[in-house]
Design a protein around this nucleic acid. Structure first.
Length: 296
DNA sequence: TCTGTTTCAAGCATATGTGTTAAT
DNA sequence: ATTAACACATATGCTTGAAACAGA
């Protein structure tokens, strides 16, 4: 099956970048812990009636382990065994992916080998290592085989796996942004108790989403070199298909879970997703949008 | 009116997602 | 560094009962 160029966009990119600016960490546990922010993607260029197999995995960004001392991350020279990460697969139709996107709400991270076998959306990673999520797209072939037709990664989604938060700033940001951590927000009262049942007509009560403003400052990280070169990873996609699979404005608006498309390079005039920076938003090659590399 | 049925959101129970804390 | 128990949060499904509705 031939495709037009496939594009994948990361949703909630601004939120991801906010965490990435503070060197994001993800808690891992024995039974598995959700990621926050949640990985969510939009697609363009898929074929509606085609079934796709989406593969999610975590790719180490370097061989080295890390440690957090004196308020900053440092790279350890001692190289320990790097356990290969497993890949999680989700099968969906092109139509569903195009219209609803893919929100990986159930995806969990663990440091336990056993947990991977008990949950089909569990990825095993190693603590104190940095990873970047990988999204692979496969097509099911008639003979039962799968052909990889795309591989995508977004640099602002990289994170360091930890069993307990190391950076105060990251921890505070999680508390502020994750609704399940609302109970730990300072100065924010709990949600108002539900109103007594009205004797007359209905009255809808919406709780205001009052998030604290974050004190912004960098984590005192320096720039330097020495980061692993990402492998060339893309299977070329041949554009032999007239570009008709264009989402219209109504479609995007009609799905609540689609997030804030205004910050996701959605152009209502052109009526399709257009990358501001193709190499960054949709590119298949890893590139650092900030123009520098992290130092450890 | 009266009576029986339908509708729908509050109330409740249960499941699950957070960072915190203390112990190892 | 890691783990388990914990208090506090959301998510969801079922129950409940008053209001709305339909028919006589």
């Amino acid at each position: 099956m031939m495709h037009t160029q496939i594009h994948v966009a990361l949703m909630e990119k601004a939120l991801w970048k906010e965490f990435d600016d503070h060197r994001n960490e993800m808690i891992i546990t024995k039974i598995g812990r959700n990621l926050f922010p949640i990985l969510e993607f939009a697609f363009k260029g898929l074929i509606e009636h085609q079934m796709y197999r989406i593969g999610i995995t975590m790719e180490p960004t370097m061989i080295n382990k890390l440690k957090f001392t004196a308020g900053r991350w440092e790279k350890l020279d001692i190289l320990e065994d790097l356990i290969p990460t497993n890949e999680v697969f989700i099968v969906k139709s092109g139509r569903e992916l195009l219209h609803r996107g893919l929100k990986l709400e159930k995806l969990k991270l663990t440091n336990s080998k056993d947990a991977v076998q008990k949950n089909d959306q569990m990825i095993r990673v190693q603590s104190m290592r940095q990873y970047i999520p990988i999204l692979n797209i496969y097509e099911d072939l008639p003979n039962g085989a799968h052909m990889q037709i795309g591989k995508y990664k977004f640099t602002e989604t990289k994170f360091i796996a930890v069993t307990a938060y190391q950076s105060e700033k990251v921890k505070n940001l999680k508390v502020q942004k994750n609704k399940f951590a609302q109970g730990f927000r300072e100065g924010v009262k709990s949600v108002q108790p539900p109103a007594k049942r009205p004797t007359s007509t209905t009255s809808s009560q919406s709780s205001p989403d009052s998030t604290l403003s974050s004190e912004s400052s960098s984590d005192g990280l320096k720039m330097a070199s020495q980061e692993l070169q990402y492998p060339q990873n893309t299977v070329p996609v041949v554009p032999s298909y007239p570009f008709q699979q264009i989402q219209n404005f109504q479609n995007f608006q009609s799905f609540q879970n689609f997030g804030n498309y205004q910050n996701q390079n959605f152009d209502p005039n052109l009526q399709y997703w257009t990358p501001q920076n193709p190499q960054y938003d949709f590119g298949n090659n890893y590139s650092n949008p900030y123009g520098y590399q992290w130092q450890f």
